[in-house]
Computed example of a mutant assay.
Amino acid sequence: MESAKFKLYLGADYVSAFAMSAFVALKEKQRLFELVTLDLKARENYQANYRDLSLTCKIPTLVHEAFALSESSAIAEYLDELSPGPQKLYPQDPRQRARARQLQAWLRSDLLVVRKERPFDLVYFGKKDTPLSDDARAAVERLFFVADRLLGEGAEHLFGDWSIADTDLAIMLNRLVANGDQVPSRLAAYVHRQWDRDSVRAWMDIARKAPAIA
């Protein structure tokens, strides 16, 4: 089991925030894995062979032996339960672990307007010139409130030691930091710390082509 190789299916453009989260989880767990890319613009993720693998036609999907699993948070939980060491992806305290999962679920289910107006590809390819709408600003304020409450004063990470929830929160915040939007200084510093992890650097070091301008 420990020596088994994994496959991570993701978009060929390497810009998905959810794919990044799964990639970071694999790197943090020091797992050997192969990246398998799909052309999402050509809708390869809706072809029968991938549909049958992923069930939901979504990326990323992790394949381990004969088991395939989609949804980046589910992937992280599976990896952590599969082998507790060397790096834990979730806090060991039950309440902190539940809070980390709550945060992950909220980041994935809310803040759609922020994801739309500050798409994650700007982290790789440059800023958006348009100001945030009123709805987006309200969502950003909710994001800042949650981040400020969960990140203790002077803390490097959310729950003492690093967890995958730190990567997920930093991904959302970096949509704003990378764009030059106004972000509280300690939250911006938190993003930069998370972006300096080896696992995140490995993701950012992947070569990408900027999308063609229409």
Rank of each mutant, 00 (worst) to 15 (best):
L69Y: 04
L69W: 05
L69S: 04
S70Q: 04
E71K: 00
E71G: 02
E71Y: 01
S72T: 05
S73Q: 14
S73F: 02
S73D: 13
S73Y: 05
A74Q: 07
A74S: 15
A74L: 14
I75V: 12
I75Y: 06
A76C: 14
A76Q: 09
A76Y: 06
A76H: 09
E77W: 07
Y78D: 05
L79I: 07
L79D: 09
D80V: 07
D80G: 06
D80Y: 04
L82S: 10
L82W: 08
S83E: 14
S83G: 00
P84Q: 11
P86C: 08
P86Y: 05
P86F: 06
Q87Y: 03
Q87S: 13
K88T: 13
K88G: 13
K88E: 11
L89F: 08
L89G: 11
L89V: 10
Y90F: 15
Y90E: 06
Y90K: 03
Y90L: 15
Y90T: 06
P91H: 03
Q92D: 15
D93S: 12
P94F: 06
P94S: 04
R95M: 09
Q96F: 01
Q96L: 12
Q96D: 13
R97E: 00
R97G: 01
R97S: 07
A98F: 02
R99D: 04
R99F: 00
R99E: 11
R99A: 04
A100P: 00
A100R: 06
A100D: 05
R101F: 00
R101K: 14
Q102R: 03
Q102E: 11
Q102D: 10
L103R: 04
L103Y: 02
A105I: 08
W106G: 00
L107G: 01
L107A: 02
R108M: 05
R108A: 13
R108N: 14
R108C: 07
D110M: 01
D110Y: 07
D110G: 00
L111F: 14
L112Q: 10
L112S: 08
V114I: 13
V114G: 02
R115T: 08
K116Q: 15
E117Y: 01
R118G: 02
R118D: 08
P119D: 03
P119K: 03
F120S: 07
F120W: 09
F120A: 09
D121C: 06
L122A: 11
L122D: 11
V123E: 04
V123A: 13
Y124K: 11
Y124W: 15
Y124S: 15
Y124T: 11
F125R: 10
K127Q: 14
K127V: 09
K127H: 10
K128I: 15
K128V: 15
K128W: 02
K128D: 06
K128E: 12
K128C: 10
D129F: 00
D129A: 14
D129V: 08
T130A: 15
P131D: 06
P131E: 06
L132K: 08
L132R: 05
L132C: 06
D134S: 11
D134N: 08
D135E: 15
D135P: 00
R137C: 08
R137P: 01
A138N: 11
A138M: 07
V140T: 06
E141Q: 14
E141V: 11
E141N: 12
E141S: 15
R142E: 10
R142S: 10
R142T: 14
L143W: 03
F144V: 12
F144R: 10
F144K: 03
F145I: 00
V146D: 01
V146F: 06
